[in-house]
Structure formats: C-alpha cells, structure tokens
Design a protein around this nucleic acid. Structure first.
Length: 440
RNA sequence: GUGGCUAUAGCUCAGUUGGUUAGAGCACCGGUUUGUGGUACCGGGGGUCGCGGGUUCGAAUCCCGUUAGCCACCCCA
C-alpha cells in the first residue's frame, strides 16, 4: 500500500477508468460540435473576488481558496460561468453573435462528499450569449437532449423539466406579493423537500395570515403542466393580470419555445414544471433541469437564463443562457443502466522476437511501423514464443508478427491473426504496405 | 457544519467465546515451455488487520479517540 493517499474527493483514473472518461468527453465534444458550438477554456485558478461577485460572500465557505505567495486572495474555480462572463465581457463588442461556446473542465468545491458529489469533478458547460429570445433556449434544450441520447439514454431514462422565473414573478405580482418574491421563491425551491405544512408555516412567518391562502395558490401553480393550466392559475389569481400584456408577451415566448421543441421532434423529452426555480437567484427567465426518471430528484444537468451577469462583470448588456452537466452523476447513471461501454485498448501488431539475433531487426521494424502510423508493441526481454504470443493476445493486438530465424532468412515476417489463428508471410521490404492491407 | 454505518492483500471477502507465524479466490510475476496464445499444474511477491491509545499473560477480534470512505441532512453555482 502506498504511504500517501489522494486528497478526499479527488479521484485517480487508472487506465480502465480513464477510458470511460475519454468516452464521456468524446460524446460531449462531438455533439457540441454538431450544434456549432466552439470550445474554449479559462484558468482553473481565479481571484476569489470573481466568484464572490457572482454568488455572494457566503460562497467562500465552499471554495478551495487561499492566499498565494504574492498575497492575492485566490480560489480554484467552483464553476466556469463567471470566467465565461468575464471573457465575453472583455471582447463583447468584437464577438460575432450569437456566441455559442462550450467547455469541458475540472471544477472544485470544498464540500462534504456523497453520492454523485465530489470535491473535484468535470463539467460540460454550454452557453449561448447575445440572443434574448427563446431560440437560444430551444437550441440548448435540443443540445441537451442529443447529448443524453448520444450516451444511449432515451425518453424512458430522462426528463427535462422546464420552468420560468418570469412566470413566477408575474404570478406573485398578480397575487400581490411582488415585494417578497425572492424570499417566496426560496421557499418554493424547497417545496418538494420539506412538507407542505412546514412550507406553509414559513410563508405565514413571511407574509402573515395570508400565508395559508398563498400556499394554496403556490400549490396550484406547482401543478401546472401546460399553458391551459397556467391560464387557469392566473385567472384565479387575478383577472386583471390574466389579461395583462406582460403575461401575454411571456406566453408568446412559451408558445415559440414549445412549438420549436415540437418542430425539432424533442417535445416528449421536455415537460413544463414550475417547481424548478433553481437555488441562487441570478437566473432571470427560463430555467431547466434534466432528471433521471428512475431516481426522482437526481439532476443530470441544469441551467437557465442569466441575462445580468455579463454586465455585472463589467461588460455591456448581454443576454445569456446556458447549462452544465457533471461527469459524476452521468457516469453513475450510465453504469447503473449498464450502458457504459467497456473499452479495450488495442494495438495493431505485437512483435514476437526469436532471440538476440533477431531483436535488432525487429526493433528496426518496430520503429518503421510506428513512424508509418501503426501501433506496435513487443516484449522487452527474450521469452519463449508461447509466452510472447500470450502477451500479444493480452495486448489486444490484431496480429502477432513473428521474427524467427527461419523467417528472417527468407526476408519475411510471419503475421499471425490472433483471432482466427491464420498465418501468412509478409515481405520485410514492404512491411508497412503489407500490414496495411492485412488490417484493412 | 450535523447524524448513521463501515474500515483485513491491487479487487471481492473469510478469520470461531480474545489464543501459535493472518487466509482464500481473482489479478500480478516466475516455472512446466528456446517455434505457436486464452485451459491446466507448480511456485512466488504483495499486509505494521486505517491510525493512535487502553484493557489483557496474549488483540484483526473488546473499549476509547482519531482519520478516511459510504449514506442521509445542509447546500447544490
């Protein structure tokens, strides 16, 4: 056993683990590219202030932060969005819009670990900036669906819940609680986790006696699953608001988005569900989360619109919407479903070397073949043929190239197909070409 | 930050009411095998039984502490 251990919440990736990781990244990258997103990255280490600016001072307790040797207060990044917002803010005026960017990177959060949550995890982030209309949300939802489909997940496996903080603001305004909306939404966010009684208690504590009727109105809103339900909820809240232009404009956005989902053939993956409000209050419009259907409440990915952030980072007004998807929950899910592929590293050829007198010839060919683009391996020491063939087989090689004295006398090497055990001689002076034909 | 459970080889786990030198399977290395691989047989390396303290003639085993892991709460950007 090693004298040292890795830090809590930080993983080591042995080759078999890394193969899974590579698979996740490949799908992420391929699908994002299919949608025309461009890959970027920022520094893993940033000033502490950057993260406090977005999330408030309380965030510090969950950061890997410290003072560097120059006396700077710095932190490993807990998320990518502040960095993205700063990068966009810096070049906002020269970036062609819409800006469609994605990134795959490690994030760090100083938290107690549990299932699906570590201290260092990798997240895919995809963001669209410069588009204020629901076309941006549509594109991101379509990307999210195809990403999950790219891993072999289907409509039975996941569901995207789509919500809207704007609708909540309009609704609370219609109910006469516009001034307490932030505090009320915090309670709504916890609604599913705490009992309705204790939620009602909190509401009564917040707004007084009208709290219990407010609780009833909120429950009705939480049960909304389509635009018809929504209309009914608003009508019973306030006739005036139900007829107002603010609501009808927002309903236009909803119609546009829902029609788009229909047109893209992904409507069955998305459900209107206003119980998603997402904790921190910097989201400004549509918000959404993708859930594992088998285990309710486990979010695979989440995001929403955050129109104010680029300006907060010193840039111009810049509409923005994005989502993140972590590798930990996703990999757990794929393993549970039995759809995490098992990868075997293979090579093209394994050289079986007769002895010292054949070794230098074999080494010359290994070098040539590798330069020609083949993956080639061989034993470091002289061993019996049987041993070397065993190693060849274990290496995953498709062919064993046998360098024996008889072969070399005839200026050939014997290629043994390791799966069907057939053999044929290849001329040494044309080895790369001959091997290419064999592998084709 | 709070609580519950757990900790023996790289992995999965045995280990009796406390009793010699802590075991097995898998994996790894070597041999049977200097011209033909997945099986078989033989052998080998690898452990301060998480760590520290206590009880005892004697602790992997009992007690206390601590650390780490898992799970839940909190939080979830």
């Amino acid at each position: 056993m090693s004298k040292f251990k890795s830090l809590p919440g930080f993983r080591e990736f042995y080759p078999e683990d890394f193969a899974e990781r590579r698979f996740l990244f490949q799908v992420w990258r391929q699908v994002a590219r299919r949608f025309g997103f461009q890959e970027f990255d920022g520094p893993a280490l940033e000033s502490l202030e950057l993260f406090k600016a977005k999330s408030g001072d309380e965030i510090e307790s969950q950061l890997f932060c410290f003072e560097d040797k120059g006396g700077r207060e710095i932190s490993l990044r807990p998320e990518l969005t502040p960095t993205l917002a700063r990068m966009i803010a810096t070049r906002a005026n020269s970036l062609k819009r819409p800006i469609k960017w994605f990134s795959i990177g490690d994030n760090f959060r100083y938290e107690r670990m549990q299932k699906g949550r570590l201290r260092c995890f990798t997240q895919l982030n995809a963001d669209i900036l410069g588009e204020s209309g629901p076309a941006a949300e549509l594109e991101l939802l379509a990307l999210l669906v195809q990403l999950l489909q790219g891993f072999g997940l289907g409509a039975d496996d996941f569901l995207i819940r789509l919500s809207d903080r704007n609708l909540w603001m309009l609704y609370l305004e219609a109910l006469g609680f516009a001034d307490k909306s932030a505090a009320i939404l915090e309670i709504v966010d916890k609604w599913e986790r705490i009992s309705e009684e204790s939620a009602t208690e909190k509401l009564v504590g917040l707004v007084g006696d009208s709290g219990s009727s407010l609780a009833g109105s909120i429950r009705a809103f939480l049960e909304v699953r389509n635009l018809q339900d929504l209309k009914t909820a608003f009508e019973s809240a306030s006739e005036e608001a139900a007829e107002g232009s603010a609501l009808s404009e927002r309903l236009d956005d909803w119609n546009c988005l829902l029609d788009g989902l229909e047109a893209m053939g992904i409507a069955q993956f998305v459900e209107m569900d206003l119980s998603i409000v997402r904790g921190l209050a910097y989201y400004t419009g549509f918000v959404f989360e993708a859930f594992d259907r088998a285990k309710e409440n486990r979010a695979i990915a989440g995001g929403g619109r955050y129109n104010g952030l680029v300006r907060k980072m010193g840039g111009p007004e810049m509409p923005a919407v994005g989502f993140g998807m972590g590798d930990v929950v996703l990999a757990d899910l794929l393993r549970e479903r039995g759809i995490m592929p098992q990868f075997v590293d293979t090579i093209d050829a394994y050289l079986v070397i007769g002895g010292d007198s054949e070794r230098s010839v074999a080494l010359a060919d290994a070098s040539l073949l590798r330069q020609s683009g083949f993956s080639v391996d061989y034993s470091f020491k002289n061993q019996a043929f049987g041993k070397q063939l065993k190693a060849a087989s274990a290496s995953g090689a498709r062919f064993a190239l046998i360098y024996g004295s008889e072969e070399l006398e005839n200026a050939v090497v014997k290629a043994r197909n390791l799966s069907d055990r057939t053999e044929q001689d290849l001329p040494r002076n044309q080895l790369p070409l001959a091997l290419r034909d064999l592998l084709a």
